[in-house]
Design a binder for these strands. Structure first.
Length: 279
DNA sequence: AAATAGTCCAACCGCATGACT
DNA sequence: GAGTCATGCGGTTGGACTATT
């Protein structure tokens, strides 16, 4: 703690009755916070709030800094890779938002939580099922995620063809990988595979708990995938594992707004069909 | 154009945990 | 060990914005 910050601590009690501000932050407040942290560093949020001359709680300052002002924070446009990663990690850890966020550089737990609530839960609601139900989880794991992989591939292929004028390759792709060791207090996630074949598709897989997943049929999709997520740097790992192309998803999404959504209309109709079929 | 409904996200709240005394 | 405080996490809310009627 530097001298200025230490000295400030002695004044804290004097100002305890100071009226605290709430609600949206002003540019001026943001500037004060940024400036103070640039000089003194973050931490000790309660004293920081007062020393910086902010009529805010320490909690509020911390949240503002971590979720918004931090220089490395990324906002908006959740990429396809990130969507896939969120689905993957959530299927393993549930609502452990901060833990999930640790594996999406620059993303905050708040943003991921919001993404989940607004996008994923919305679709669960539309499918008239509970977001925690096995059916929904299966749908997510064996339909959405492969679908996302397919889109990522398609985007990569499109990107490659536009840059190198190389035609897209076969629609059948195999991703081979296995979950690495997981540091979940001994819980070991071994492997997971997506295996979707031609019509009268069998989706057969088991997770670390030996859970057999339900079967779906009449897929028009034809591909086989297996996921692997490295805990050390899953985003990068996914990049390498799901597709080996260098791609710019964000620019692609700008040209194809539908890519930004987890579903497009076709997907949703398709999922509804599948879900109702299995109810 | 106005009213209403739906979506999204920043911010708040309560609780749990850990550090310190 | 008990009490206090700071921090972090997950759930929830309020309001701005957008879409629909």
């Amino acid at each position: 703690m530097d001298v200025k910050a230490r000295d400030c601590v002695h004044h804290i009690n004097e100002d305890d009755h100071m009226e605290l501000r709430r609600g949206p932050w002003t540019v001026e407040e943001d500037f004060k916070l940024i400036e103070y942290i640039a000089t003194h560093g973050e931490g000790r949020w309660n004293s920081l709030a007062r020393c910086a001359g902010l009529k805010r709680t320490g909690k509020s300052c911390r949240l503002r800094w971590l979720n918004y002002l931090r220089p490395d924070v990324r906002r908006g446009n959740i990429t396809l890779e990130e969507q896939l990663l969120i689905l993957e990690l959530h299927s393993r850890w549930g609502n452990r938002w901060s833990k999930i966020a640790q594996h999406l550089p620059g993303r905050t737990d708040n943003e991921i939580k919001n993404y989940w609530r607004t996008r994923v839960q919305k679709h669960a609601k539309q499918l008239k099922c509970d977001v925690n139900s096995k059916q929904f989880k299966d749908t997510m794991r064996y339909l959405w995620m492969p679908r996302l992989v397919e889109r990522i591939q398609a985007a990569a292929a499109a990107s490659a063809s536009t840059t190198a004028n190389v035609p897209a390759t076969s629609t059948t792709t195999t991703f081979t990988s296995v979950f690495g060791d997981d540091q979940l207090g001994g819980a070991q996630v071994t492997s997971s595979s997506y295996s979707l074949e031609n019509s009268s598709t069998t989706v057969a897989s088991s997770d670390s708990f030996g859970t057999q997943v339900s079967q779906f049929s009449d897929f028009s999709d034809h591909y086989t995938t297996t996921t692997n997520t490295s805990i050390n740097n899953p985003t990068q790992e996914l990049s390498g594992i799901y597709y080996n192309h260098v791609m710019d998803v964000q620019s692609l999404e700008q040209n194809n707004p539908w890519l930004d959504n987890l579903f497009n209309a076709e997907d949703f109709y398709f999922l509804q069909q599948q879900f109702n079929f299995n109810m």
